[in-house]
């Protein structure tokens, strides 16, 4: 059943996302085509170069817009789930976890795809394709290799943060849905209030952390370790944050699930 739900979620979101992504890739193809033409034709006109660069810029922009749109579209879909559509969706022989999971996976997939493509498109401007036998590249890779766990940790942290940002919005929708008739207003209020609360808490936590680092014996110890072994310490921190974010994601998931099962009241 979960696979079916996921399939439907991709099918529905795909109808909106694929044309936009396709459009971006067409623009990018146009830019590549213009570049190829310039290289093939001896006296290529100037506007071809301009057109090529514009197409390229548009394609990258579209991809960036895509990532943002994927986020908002995913939130809107979850919001709708807690409205009239819920009468149909929650009657399906599917658990609440599966509903949340399917929408989360689909939404994050489109976001990651868009962001990934925008990096690839953006990075490809960097010049001719580099061969893996290039000695400079090999030396660069050798120097960067020890930091691989750090980059991986960084990447993991970004990924989990993306998931947290989506789940956070789902949670807010579920909270807002507790106010039946004024669901939309309640969701917006929850968004603002939670945003302010998180800001205040972050500043407080940061202050506490700085204080502890400067004045506590453990803090001194950790500072010493950090200075001796910057790479390892940084890697540990990044992975630590990734794990913390994963815990926050799990908490949000279960809180949202609780709200849409025990406290579900479709408007």
């Amino acid at each position: 059943m979960f696979v079916k739900l996921l399939k439907w979620e991709f099918r529905q979101t795909g109808r909106v996302m694929l044309p936009v992504l396709g459009g971006a890739l067409i623009l990018y193809g146009g830019a590549l085509g213009a570049q190829a033409l310039i290289q093939l034709i001896a006296g290529a006109p100037a506007w071809l170069d301009v057109a090529g660069r514009m197409l390229y810029a548009l394609s990258v922009l579209t991809l960036i817009v895509c990532s943002v749109a994927a986020f908002f579209y995913g939130v809107v879909r979850f919001y709708r789930l807690l409205g009239d559509e819920g009468y149909l969706m929650f009657s399906l022989p599917v658990t609440a976890s599966q509903h949340i999971g399917a929408k989360l996976i689909a939404s994050c997939t489109w976001m990651i795809l868009s962001i990934g493509l925008s990096f690839v498109a953006g990075g490809a401007e960097a010049g001719p394709i580099v061969s893996t036998n290039d000695p400079e590249l090999q030396e660069l890779l050798a120097r960067l290799w020890p930091g691989a766990p750090l980059y991986a940790g960084f990447f993991a942290f970004l990924l989990v943060s993306l998931v947290v940002s989506v789940l956070w919005m789902y949670f807010l929708c579920a909270v807002g849905a507790q106010w039946g008739q004024s669901r939309f207003a309640a969701t917006v209020v929850a968004y603002i209030v939670s945003g302010v609360a998180v800001q205040i808490l972050s500043v407080a936590a940061l202050a506490a952390f700085a204080f502890a680092a400067a004045y506590s014996p453990l803090g001194q110890q950790m500072a010493g370790y950090f200075l001796a072994n910057p790479l390892a310490a940084l890697t540990a921190w990044v992975w630590g944050f990734a794990a913390l974010s994963a815990a926050v994601a799990a908490a949000l998931f279960f809180a949202t699930r609780y709200l849409i099962t025990k406290r579900l009241n479709l408007a």
Binding site: R15, R80, D84, G86, Y87, L88, M89, S91
Partner: peptide
């Protein structure tokens, strides 16, 4: 089989 008192089919 549940038929609600409102239209619940997605508009699109």
């Amino acid at each position: 089989a549940y038929l609600p008192d409102r239209v619940s089919l997605p508009r699109n």
